[in-house]
Design a protein around this nucleic acid. Structure first.
Length: 782
RNA sequence: GGGCCUGUAGUCUAGUGGCUAUGACGUCGCCCUUACACGGCGAAGGUCCCCGGUUCGAAUCCGGGCAGGCCCACCA
């Protein structure tokens, strides 16, 4: 018997304790495993994005669904703790600069920030009822065990010859002083000056060239015009670069677009990726003007020491004074920015290690083809990215908080030495594990000081959680991984790199399913961001409404893959449904189930309706689409079961006046319990708390989360009359309303559709009708 | 420039060829009918973005616009 009048979020705490105590979500090894490569959240600051919390709620629903479908589910939880964002967070929080304090000290501060943020996130996950195995399958990507594996895979790929060192122009973030991969670049439209500069050719002709990067004049190596451009046909020889005075060839090339600027374009090392490509293609001599601090170097002559921006202004002014500027236009220019550092990037050649990816693009594409995407249109995002990858992956970073590049170099000849896999190496502070250089025999080594791109760590999460190289038994059962759930914005990074790396290491396709969640946006459909000031903190929301309300809102809010809006009024709507469900259960809990029962047509009808609901929910769950079951269950439980069936059988279930037989009475009670039992089982993956509470009160002492997903119930199917029933009930209610009669007052005579005759007795009691007839249409009253 | 997605009452949303277009929030009435007033019943509110086509029939399919979002691309 349920006593409390409302579902209280305070119940959630005791239920969490019940689950913890009974190890309800503990993973036990078995032959077949449904493995989930849970995204390890990145602790980048507070508050945690409410959209992310919603995202994790949905991932939890996937795990719970898989369990109820009879799978043994490996549902780990990790925390991603490597890389740039935490370094930036730490610099700000402790007001330090990474390069100005000792590495040891900085690493410690990062750890401190991470521990605190991790605790905060784990707390939230726990609060929302995240059913991962926190005790046995919780990991950190910066743990020794994890980094050891990252390094082992690095060493393995090194030995396969897939990693090489090269000096080539690369994306370089001057603010964070590190090379970054193309996948980490984002573009912004910003206003820029397009400066029209006068050049002279050797034979004295004047040329005007438009550029956004006048400070790179000193690195200019060629001038191009389009071969079809009538204005410049026949132009050849050399041009003289203003200020610097060096001569550069004038070359016809289709890259130059006649309609842009003057139709002449100068090629410099390096203003953009086109420059990189053209330098390579035309074999032009490279000259670097910008150093790794983002300042002009000595190659730039009198601009040495200035920041790029300052140099741009200064040289423009100088050119103007020399009368060499024809005009300046303001244009919107698409500029590459570092996604994480939020600063414009420069293209600077650096010596870095690269992981080969170009030769594997076809394999990655084949893997992607085999994976089932939910929803399927996101597969295209991955293909688009694969098609646009054009250079190998630079994997070394000049940062401190990351997995160390496990290489030592001979101090004498520079030969790189890679240690044996299986240990965690920190070359920046450890002694080299080698006796002497294998090349020159020298005995002194120096460790590499760089770290690996954090995607080198993240891209093996699927291997880490499934026990690769650490637990063969688990690996056999959990790999390939059943499902990767993730957000859409990291398709080109996390998903792509994982497929690539796992293929390189195992020659297998890593996932069977990929599930892509949408974004959480504010109630006007705008992306939440700190600058817009529309960030919603999840903690007070969870405190106010509880996890199940949040989860139900989240499930019922948007279709799989589409963005969902945060709105408090909708949360309240979700809360009302939980109250309704609670009161339904409270009502039913007042009756005693007995064995001698007989189902009447009304009972068979509601069970038939339940069966349809089970089918629909199952279909939704199978696609990991919680929008479908959430709304189906709500509709069935509220608008059919409560509004019509319960009202119909109330009299029979109470049977106060003895108008029904004992068997008929028990039939109603039996059916009430049966339908409720199935409703809460259907809802359990979405609302694990309230369903558990009702379940434990009324049905069993063993957790609902150990139960199987409902099957259709064998019953005489009664179909096609639900709408007629609803219409008839509605007409009666309307009639009483119009006459100003209370709903429990009696009606002398009524006529209902003949299909409803099977419900006769229940309908008479429900509406208090003295004489009920049946025919072709509804008639009420005299 | 290419691709993907979206456009349905004040707001949000369901609906992929068929009866008077779904539901929620909000609004307006009436009702505490012994599970629930976080409830019940009822009502108002829509040129289903626009134009054209296919069809007996289009919110739904096709073509062309317009608007918004996202992804990709070497326009200095």
């Amino acid at each position: 018997m349920i006593k409390e009048k409302r579902w209280k979020k305070e119940f959630e705490k005791e239920l969490r304790e019940f689950w913890d105590k009974n190890n309800v979500y503990e993973f036990k090894k078995s032959e077949k495993v449904f493995s989930i490569d849970t995204p390890p959240p990145y602790p980048s600051g507070k508050p945690w994005h409410i959209g992310a919390v919603a995202h994790y709620s949905q991932i939890d629903m996937i795990a719970r669904t898989a369990r109820m479908f009879g799978n043994n589910v490996l549902f780990p939880v990790g925390i991603d703790r490597n890389g740039l964002p935490v370094e930036i967070y730490t610099e700000k929080k402790y007001n330090v600069q990474m390069h100005k304090i000792s590495r040891e000290k900085f690493v410690q501060l990062c750890k401190k920030s991470l521990d605190e943020l991790e605790e905060y996130m784990i707390q939230i996950l726990h609060t929302i009822g995240f059913s991962a195995d926190f005790k046995n399958h919780r990991y950190r990507t910066d743990s020794e065990e994890y980094r050891k594996l990252t390094q082992a895979t690095f060493i393995e790929l090194w030995k396969k010859g897939l990693i090489y060192e090269d000096t080539r122009p690369n994306n370089y973030c001057v603010k964070t002083k590190t090379t970054i991969a193309d996948a980490e670049i984002e573009y912004k439209e910003i206003e820029t000056n397009l400066v029209y500069i006068k050049f002279k050719t050797e034979d004295g002709k004047q040329l005007v060239i438009a550029t956004t990067r006048p400070e790179l004049l000193g690195a200019c190596a060629a001038i191009l015009y389009n071969p079809n451009d009538e204005r410049y046909k026949g132009l050849k020889g050399n041009a003289i670069v203003p200020i610097y005075g060096h001569k550069v060839p004038i070359i016809p090339h289709p890259y130059a677009k006649p309609e842009f600027g003057t139709g002449l374009v100068m090629i410099c090392s390096y203003g953009d990726y086109a420059d990189v490509r053209l330098f390579r293609e035309l074999k032009l001599p490279e000259k670097i003007l910008i150093d790794e601090n983002g300042r002009m170097n000595k190659n730039s002559g009198k601009y040495e020491g200035l920041l790029v921006k300052e140099a741009r202004e200064k040289i423009t002014k100088d050119l103007q004074e020399m009368g060499l500027v024809e005009k300046i236009e303001k244009i919107m220019h698409r500029t590459p920015f570092s996604e994480r550092g939020k600063h414009p990037i420069e293209i600077i050649p650096m010596k870095e290690y690269y992981l080969k990816q170009i030769p594997f693009l076809d394999d990655v594409r084949k893997c992607a083809e085999k994976i089932k995407f939910h929803p399927d249109y996101y597969k295209q995002f991955l293909f688009d990215w694969i098609d646009s990858v054009s250079i190998d992956w630079p994997i070394t970073r000049r940062r401190f908080y990351g997995t160390e590049v496990p290489i030592w170099y001979c101090k004498k000849c520079g030969e790189p030495h890679v240690p044996e896999p299986g240990k965690y190496y920190q070359p920046w502070k450890q002694k080299a594990p080698f006796e002497k250089c294998k090349k020159c025999g020298n005995k002194e080594f120096v460790g590499d000081e760089r770290t690996l791109d954090t995607w080198m760590d993240s891209s093996i999460s699927a291997l880490f959680i499934s026990g690769y190289k650490r637990d063969e038994e688990l690996f056999k059962s959990a790999f390939p991984v059943s499902l990767r759930p993730q957000a859409k914005e990291i398709i080109r990074t996390w998903l792509y790199y994982t497929i690539l790396r796992v293929w390189q290491l195992t020659n297998k396709c890593v996932f069977k399913h990929v599930w892509i969640g949408g974004h959480g946006v504010d109630e006007h459909g705008k992306k939440m961001s700190k600058s817009l000031g529309n960030i919603v903190d999840p903690v007070p929301i969870l405190e106010k409404y509880g996890a199940d309300t949040f989860r139900f809102w989240n499930a019922a809010e948007a279709n799989v893959g589409s963005d969902f809006r945060y709105s408090e009024s909708r949360l309240i709507a979700a809360q009302k449904f939980l109250t309704k469900l609670w009161n339904l259960s409270r009502f039913i809990s007042g009756f005693q189930k007995e064995d001698n029962y007989k189902l009447t047509a009304s009972d068979e009808w509601i069970i038939s309706e339940l069966n349809k609901t089970i089918e629909k929910c199952k279909k939704g769950y199978e696609e990991f689409n919680f929008f479908i079951p959430a709304n189906e269950i709500k509709h069935f439980a509220w608008s059919i079961f409560a509004d019509h069936y319960i009202e119909m059988v109330k009299a029979r279930a109470y049977n106060k006046e003895g108008k029904f037989s004992k068997e008929e009475q028990n039939g109603a009670i039996r059916t009430l319990y049966l339908v409720l039992e199935n409703i809460i089982k259907l809802l359990a993956p979405i609302c694990p708390f309230i369903t558990e509470k009702i379940w434990l009160e009324l049905f069993s002492k063993e957790s609902i989360h150990k139960q199987k997903f409902p099957e259709k119930i064998k019953v005489k199917q009664i179909e096609g009359i639900t709408e007629k029933l609803i219409e008839f009930n509605s007409e009666v209610w309307k009639y009483k309303k119009e006459k100003g009669m209370p709903l429990n007052s009696s009606i002398k005579r009524a006529k209902a559709y003949k299909e409803l005759e099977i419900f006769k007795q229940d309908l008479i009691e429900m509406h208090n009708i003295e004489e009920l007839e049946f025919g072709e249409k509804i008639e009420i009253g005299e």
